[in-house]
Design a protein around this nucleic acid. Sequence first.
RNA 1: GGUGGAGUCGCGUAGUGGCCGAGCGCGCACGCCUCGAAAGCGUGUGAGGGGGCAACCUCUCCGUGGGUUCAAAUCCCACCUCCACCGCCA
Length: 421
Amino acid sequence: MLDLRLIREEKERVAAALARRGDDPAVLDRVLDLDARRRATQAQMDERRAEQKRLSKDVPQLSGGERVETLARLKTLSDDVAAVEKEQASLAAELNALMLDIPNVPDPTAPEGAGDDANVELRRWGLPQAFEFPVRDHVEIGASLGIIDVERGARTSGSRFYYLKGAAVLLELALVRYALDRLQQEGFTPVLPPVLVRREAMEGTGFLPTDEAQIYRTADDDLYLVGTSEVPLAALHMGETLNAGDLPLRYAGISTCFRREAGTYGKDTRGIFRVHQFDKVEMFSFTTPDTSSDEHEFLLQIEEWLLQGLELPYRVVNIAAGELGASAAKKYDCEAWLPGQADYRELTSCSNCTDYQARRLNCRFKGDGNPAFVHTLNGTAISTARWLIALLETHQRADGGVTIPAALRPFFGADHIAPPK
RNA sequence: GGUGGAGUCGCGUAGUGGCCGAGCGCGCACGCCUCGAAAGCGUGUGAGGGGGCAACCUCUCCGUGGGUUCAAAUCCCACCUCCACCGCCA
């Protein structure tokens, strides 16, 4: 949610920002019109209510004709207030619905344009390895080792579902511990959050109403399955006023993530690159406004450490304004080289949502001055399906086994996955 | 799933239709007192919206949302959360 005052005072700036995202700024005129009308009715309502309060104070002391007369006047006034209040409420509701749909203002350093080709590559780390044998992708590797079963996953639950077995399970758990260990060193508190959440949490984080089609909803209880633990982590301090001295608050959420992937039928259909269910360790920070930009770089730094530790070549991409999610002002993706696809693909994503989520969640902090909205940031530490792909494909061996990078061995318990017999 | 009880300004409590648009205690802040401190005394003590250059004025908020009424913390309805007991499951 944007600050209404910002739209009132700097409409042109906000209009330019929406244009950068490829959105129609015309909505701002409707917002301002509704806002002006809402404030006018608010003033009317306040005035009449003040009058009503003044008069009704005397009622207990009055008697006889005077009392009857005053009550009659108050009745009229009361009806009047009710009418204006109704109008005010409907204007406010209409305004709020519009505001919920307006995305965050992109950061000046987010690149111009829309589409993947508008994203700007910032740097590369590592070199895509040259293999001395025919490279296999994770589907082949997973099937031959008997550790990823896509066919039976589809039989049980439909396409984009899968079974992980044996070494893949241990690898996944090792990845989680690997990330968690590092994050604890950096001051993140591990959290196992609820994965079914109320509508307020989805709305507060900006996934609703915008991404309704991507979210699973339970039929009987009106709860939503989270697509990332960003949602319950952001909602952790919903409605709270935090102490400035406690910031930044850093959490590492571990959860299964559910995504409908509606509208992606032809895309990434092979293997477990784009799936309805995966597990993820997510970083989430609550900061003051003046430190969020540094925190964003910090989260990116951690993502790079984690990738480098696993010897996965990658590049860092600054996402274009037109490609940003509704809540993000700025976003970095780390794309690792996947030998099976011979391309860099997204493994992590980290966003600075500034005060956009905080305003929706009503999450503030208080220092010396008045309470102000916090800034929220989120970033992938590791997501299991895609990191598994990167590991299996990057560290595959000629004999069909897979080498486990040194940093992961203490958590995996072995230095390689044995080739199939 | 059922029955009963509860949710008040940081904490604890008062409050069954107008003198509560919220009292008291604790806590906290400032001041007085003191060599200093404690105690004591005094003053203050939330958030949000609207208006004004400003001092200031005004409205909203007693779990949430509706309703009754000229008037609701107080009455009615629904929901949320917590507690207790019963049933069921682990």
